[in-house]
Design a protein around this nucleic acid. Sequence first.
DNA 1: CTCATAGGTGTGCTTCACACACGAAGGATC
DNA 2: GATCCTTCGTGTGTGAAGCACACCTATGAG
Lengths: 224, 224
Amino acid sequence: MKHTYEYPRPAVTVDSVLFTLRANDLAVLLIRRRKAPHKGKFALPGGFVDANEGLAAAALRELAEETDVTDVTLEQLGAYGDPGRDPRGHTVSVAYFTFVVAEAHPVKAGDDASEAVWVHWADIEGGNAELAFDHATIVHDARVRLQQRLDDPRRHAGFELVPSRFTLSELQRVYEAVFGRTLDKRNFRSRLLALDLVETVMAAQRTGRHRPAQLYRWKNSRKR
Amino acid sequence: MKHTYEYPRPAVTVDSVLFTLRANDLAVLLIRRRKAPHKGKFALPGGFVDANEGLAAAALRELAEETDVTDVTLEQLGAYGDPGRDPRGHTVSVAYFTFVVAEAHPVKAGDDASEAVWVHWADIEGGNAELAFDHATIVHDARVRLQQRLDDPRRHAGFELVPSRFTLSELQRVYEAVFGRTLDKRNFRSRLLALDLVETVMAAQRTGRHRPAQLYRWKNSRKR
DNA sequence: CTCATAGGTGTGCTTCACACACGAAGGATC
DNA sequence: GATCCTTCGTGTGTGAAGCACACCTATGAG
């Protein structure tokens, strides 16, 4: 396949926003940049799209290269193409996002990253963790979209919100972190059960120093 | 500003999906391609993003160049980057969409288009009007997003659905076309009025061969 | 005058969202 | 083994919103 268009044009990059729950707080997977520009700042895992590479594929590849995270389901957030967003030149970034169970995806820095860490939302929000480029905008937009997705009672998520076996309290904590407010336990449970997406796992409980919780799993076979 | 990245990479294009209401049917603004590939087929107005040009700006520029339509509010739909989507080479297209009042935006073909026309949804759906590239996918996605936008009772549209003075029946016809089904008149009106977005225009009616209709306008000054 | 056409209006039922409080089960400690 | 602490699990009532539904009104045409 030939490249017919050779004049100066924007380059295409991808960036991924991975959310998770850490210590009952929403967190985002970020890398610390090893190179200029924005050396030492936090940034979203991402990079250039190769010739003849799909966008989602590129996002997954870069995610794997920079953080060692694989097997996630990315959803497209949108394209960010402000000409000034990268001081090195005009780039258009296509952003993806998802929610994952951090424990299922151990993180390891690679490549351009000197570090790959889950950063708590409070640190992002509070300006405690400075983000490179326009990544603060992207992260905020991603959170809004995540909220919209969890709001919709129809296609209810599709993200990996909890492990394959989970208690309703665990799931509720995810929702509370995403929306940033507490939810009423009874309403949460009855609404969720009414959706008929979830079923109990028989003879399976778990322990703490209190009454054990009923375990559930998503109903339609496929892991969520 | 220098371009640091010179190896083969995808090019960036923009495409716009403009919806309108024609003869009580949803219609999309398309151009007929004058050049190969897909010569003679219908396509969305769009084209390459220039160096240091914003995405929305590029979409507006191409729209004006190819169809002579200006002064519209585009909303981003998403990026389409399948490597095989353009036989000439790898391009990533960022799609935009909106809804406009066709009468307010006279259409005139220019540039690469031998024609710029409003194509009825039925002709698109029925395969009667063949679309180039992956534009059929984009158009369908755009309609879904448009429906979602009109569904949301909060930010209620923001699109130019009707002229600045309009009857509730006119607005209802727009909704019916977008959703592809009839709506109950009383429910439509009471729900809309409950939103308090609309107000009557005094001493203003209009005629047909029947009882005149009350005219309305959007409440918060700004035209919608 | 009659008819055809679109405009305008109100009520009851059902559903959903939400606020809210207490007993149950187990572990830890004394 | 009694007590206490913690989280788990549950049902009802109230108000708001969604939805189905039918008839009279104002005008123009013939």
